[in-house]
């Protein structure tokens, strides 16, 4: 069995002045796994990813990463922070947040440069990731001129240039056209084949089958209500319905009015 990367124990977190975002979450993630965290809006999926990336810290409970407890104080140390952040990369839901540099090239270079990578090597990485994500033509563009799909690919490139062991994706396919969704799924699957751990927060059930072997369902109580193989979770229609992940859907189909639950595509009959 592969090594444990993250261990989340009874984690609770509240944003200042707001309702609790997580109320006692337990989870174990091993190296090379493909994991999806699903749940309706506001169930704490993004909060969990921010905790795993060491951007916020639990008010109760603990998160252990690579065998060491993840503490705010420990990440104040530049060496420790770099050691951790080289290994974990987060693709934010809003690409505009992730792309803060004045050009695409600089955004991709930002991560490696902070870790002290030589400029020659950084330029080589820029070319490599541009080829993988087909964004050569965007390198000298300013981020605000890009489409949402292009921004998303550049945001992924900015993390890929760091080459972390663990990729955290926050709603990677939200609002994207089908071709871009396909590219991103292919990227995630290929990264996992290369041994990378993939953790995705999403409520897009259509992509779960490909991007996750294990699925955790977050409920309105901000806890994990079920965890298991993607197949078993996706087949539990009562669970998905009770957690706002599927709904009754009415449409025209082959000339007939058709009513069924809104399910992942592969289960549509």
């Amino acid at each position: 069995m592969s090594a444990i990367i993250f261990e989340v124990k009874d984690v609770q977190y509240s944003y200042p002045g707001k309702f609790p975002a997580l109320c006692g979450v337990d989870m174990t993630i091993r190296s090379g796994e493909k994991i999806a965290v699903i749940g309706a809006n506001g169930t704490g999926k993004s909060t969990l990813l921010h905790l795993l990336d060491g951007l916020i810290f639990p008010h109760q409970g603990q998160v252990t990463a690579f065998g060491e407890r993840l503490l705010e104080n420990s990440l104040f140390d530049e060496k420790a922070a770099h050691h951790f952040r080289r290994r974990v990369g987060l693709v934010f839901q809003n690409a505009d947040i992730q792309l803060f540099c004045p050009s695409v090239r600089e955004d991709i270079a930002f991560g490696p440069l902070q870790f002290g990578v030589e400029e020659e090597e950084v330029n080589r990485r820029i070319m490599d990731v541009a080829q993988v994500l087909d964004i050569h033509h965007l390198l000298d563009r300013v981020p605000h001129q890009l489409s949402i799909g292009e921004k998303k690919r550049v945001a992924i490139a900015s993390v890929l240039a760091i080459d972390p062991d663990v990729y955290l994706f926050d709603e990677p396919t939200a609002g994207l056209d089908p071709l871009t969704v396909r590219h991103i799924i292919d990227f995630m699957v290929n990264a996992n084949r290369r041994g990378k751990t993939i953790i995705t927060a999403t409520h897009d059930l259509h992509i779960i089958g490909e991007i996750a072997d294990t699925v955790y369902v977050f409920g309105r109580n901000k806890r994990i209500v079920r965890g298991g193989s993607s197949e078993s979770v996706l087949n539990d229609r009562a669970l998905l319905e009770s957690n706002n992940l599927i709904h009754i859907h009415q449409h025209h189909h082959d000339g007939k009015e058709h009513v069924h639950q809104h399910l992942p595509l592969e289960q549509h009959d």
Binding site: R86, Q98, F100, F115, E119, V122, I162
Partner: peptide
Amino acid sequence: QMSEEVYMAMLSRGYTGEPQLLSE
């Protein structure tokens, strides 16, 4: 709100207070 999130995005990619930028 966005400035806080952007700061998080910077931290996530290794920013520790002294930025290094590309000299092109």
